[in-house]
């Protein structure tokens, strides 16, 4: 039987959100099947928590001071693994070209990847928080202030990381290049996230935490705008 491949009913105009959710759906579906990215991130972050737990003999006061730093070290390094893997998937079998051939504004691809990566970050952060609380006997980390900082910090980290991983994915030394590019750029996000979550853990008043929170919000907005404007240029030859 001959099946006509040409059908007059098929129209092509792709709305922004529809195509963006298609990218998110694709990332979640593929990861839900292989767990390659998440398993690497989980193992790495758990090991970081474990190593720090054995390396430091912390009393209650010291624990309050260093807890946020340990948490963010685990998030940042595990996140780098995830970001690298997330773009490596797009380079396999030329998939990135397949995405770029779609008749959509290319920022759609960027935002889709950001949402996907952010979801993976949260999927790592939730068990890491529980593990941290158990290992360090420090259940005070489950407070709304810390969670707000983790959300804002993760957004900033993922927004920058997705942009830079798209850039480094074009290079042959992408595995090495991403951390080198990412850490200096993302430093303001990490410093403010560590400071703000530390302040919340020390139960300081909100007026002392607000400057760091404000900086996180500003960085998130600026980096999101930069990613939106520049993504097209970094994926084009």
């Amino acid at each position: 039987m001959t099946v006509k491949t040409r059908s007059k009913k098929v129209r092509v105009t792709t709305p922004f959100f529809k195509s963006m959710w298609a990218v998110v759906w694709k990332d979640l579906k593929a990861e839900g099947r292989s767990f390659q990215l998440l398993s690497a991130m989980w193992i790495f972050s758990f090991l970081v928590i474990l190593i720090f737990n054995f390396a430091f003999e912390l009393n209650i006061r010291e624990r309050t001071n260093v807890a946020s730093g340990i948490l963010w070290v685990a998030f940042v390094f595990a996140g780098t693994l995830g970001l690298n893997r997330s773009m490596a998937v797009e380079k396999d079998r030329g998939c990135l070209d397949g995405l770029l051939l779609a008749p959509v504004d290319r920022s759609v691809i960027y935002f889709g990847k950001v949402i996907g990566n952010l979801f993976f970050m949260f999927m790592v952060e939730i068990p890491v928080l529980f593990l941290f609380a158990v290992f360090y006997n420090y259940f005070e980390i489950f407070n709304w202030g810390v969670i707000l900082v983790i959300v804002l910090g993760s957004i900033g980290y993922t927004v920058v990381g997705t942009f830079l991983s798209s850039m480094s994915a074009q290079s042959r030394s992408r595995d090495v290049l991403l951390p080198i590019l990412l850490f200096p750029v993302v430093l303001p996000v990490v410093i403010n996230a560590v400071r703000a979550s530390g302040n919340f853990l020390q139960a300081q008043e909100f007026m002392f935490v607000w400057p760091s929170i404000r900086m996180l919000i500003v960085f998130d907005v600026i980096f999101l705008a930069l990613g939106y404007m520049l993504f097209d240029f970094i994926v084009e030859e």
Binding site: V12, T13, S19, G94, C95, L99
Partner: peptide, 22 residues
């Protein structure tokens, strides 16, 4: 230009969505 961790059907579904195929 296909995703190895998606099925044949899912790959076509993804690209069909990107092109807003009715």
């Amino acid at each position: 230009l296909l995703y190895g961790d998606l099925t044949a059907e899912e790959n076509l579904e993804f690209f069909g969505r990107m092109y807003n195929v009715n």
